[in-house]
Write a protein that binds this DNA or RNA. Structure first.
Lengths: 102, 102
DNA sequence: TCGATAGTTCGAATGTACGTGAACTGTAGC
DNA sequence: GCTACAGTTCACGTACATTCGAACTATCGA
């Protein structure tokens, strides 16, 4: 299987991050990740097809919002909290707080 | 001319704000507004057509990012900094800082 | 080895965002 | 009134986002 490509911290662009976050499904993924849930691709979005889910993870990964790591047959996701905080301090926290309060 | 409709502070939704900000042209508008420039619609985006500019202002206004106020024949724009800070503390600052540093 | 499982990728359909010119509304100034 | 100006709205084309099923790759477990 092909390698999972992640942009380096210095390559993160605010446009890409905003674009990745500006979608209800992806915003929900990020929110659940931030809440500490250990997510695999398959268990996260039962309401959409596998290919649709895969698309959203790609956007989040290529935007630099999350890491994907293969473990056996599954892919584990984790938020790139430190990288995002380093490049865009306060952004993630404010977005998460906003999602929390609605 | 038809009234300029703005969402109330309590109606602001994080999805709409992110959507509005997730565009290079609109991000630049917001950045210039934040820098204190007094912007009218016509002087802000000379590189795109009037109708395109009008489209972007509508997205920003309906997303709750800026106010538009008619003054004679022109429309003056201002950032809804207080409303955004009240609903989504830290969001605007982090986005503006990110745009600054690129 | 063989079947089941976890995801990705491809191709196609649909929808929405973006960009434009033309026609329009309303204001300013003569 | 008339003309110029500032923006909006409309109808349209184009590009991209979203969605899906089907085919594929790779791993796990029996």
């Amino acid at each position: 299987m092909v390698a999972l490509v992640h942009p380096a911290r210095e390559q993160l662009r605010i446009e890409d991050v905003l674009e990745a976050l500006a979608n209800p499904i992806r915003l929900r993924i990020v929110h659940r990740l931030a809440a500490g849930e250990e997510l695999t691709c398959g268990t996260t979005l039962p309401e959409v097809s596998k290919s649709t889910a895969s698309h959203h993870w790609r956007v989040l990964r290529e935007g630099g919002v999350l890491f994907q790591r293969r473990v056996g047959r599954t892919v584990l996701m984790s938020l790139r909290r430190e990288d995002l905080d380093a490049r865009f301090p306060g952004l993630l926290a404010s977005v998460l707080a906003a999602v929390d309060s609605d």
